[in-house]
Computed example of a mutant assay.
Amino acid sequence: MTEAYSFPNLLSGGWRNMDFGPFRDGVEICRLAEGSPEVALLRYAPGASVPLHSHPGLEVVLVLEGAQTDENGRHETGALVLNPPGTQHSVQSDVGCTVLIQWERPVQILGGI
């Protein structure tokens, strides 16, 4: 990213009008900044999940709507989750959710497909 970008009204639902594409089964992505770090929106359908994975760099997640669950608990709208380097978890969303996510390095999938 070589120039500044602004995403007006993101926290008040501005993300609903953004373009999402396929990411994983049941999860869509809207990439906001590629490279290191990468910043994106992830939209989980109800029942969607991401298998066990490790974080070689810091991952920051802000739940914009809905809820997601991992080994550390249930994270609902407004929750800020920090997954430091060296941690691992799997993510599920029983009700569906949209999150703003930033990761320093791509995660390493450890289980599932």
Rank of each mutant, 00 (worst) to 15 (best):
M1C: 14
T2W: 13
Y5E: 07
Y5Q: 09
S6L: 13
P8I: 11
P8T: 13
L10A: 08
L11R: 09
L11I: 06
G14C: 11
R16L: 09
R16C: 04
M18I: 07
D19V: 05
D19R: 15
G21D: 14
P22M: 05
F23Q: 09
F23L: 12
G26W: 03
G26H: 00
V27C: 06
E28R: 10
A33L: 12
A33M: 09
E34V: 04
E34W: 01
E34C: 06
S36V: 07
V39N: 08
R43Y: 11
Y44D: 02
A45T: 06
A45Y: 03
A48T: 05
A48G: 03
S49T: 02
V50N: 08
V50K: 05
P51D: 08
P51H: 04
H53P: 00
S54L: 12
H55E: 11
H55L: 09
G57N: 06
L58Q: 08
L58F: 07
E59C: 01
E59K: 07
V61N: 10
G66K: 00
A67N: 02
T69P: 03
T69E: 07
D70R: 05
E71Y: 00
E71L: 02
H75A: 09
H75W: 01
E76I: 04
E76Y: 00
G78Y: 00
G78S: 06
G78M: 08
A79R: 04
L80R: 11
V81W: 00
P84K: 03
P84A: 05
P84T: 03
P85L: 05
P85F: 03
G86I: 00
G86L: 01
T87R: 09
Q88T: 04
H89A: 10
S90I: 01
V91P: 00
Q92G: 14
Q92C: 12
S93Y: 12
D94Y: 08
V95K: 08
C97V: 10
T98R: 02
V99H: 03
L100M: 12
L100Y: 04
Q102N: 11
W103Q: 11
P106A: 14
P106D: 15
Q108I: 14
I109L: 14
I109T: 10
I109K: 11
I109V: 13
G111P: 00
G111V: 02
G112K: 08
I113Y: 00
I113Q: 04
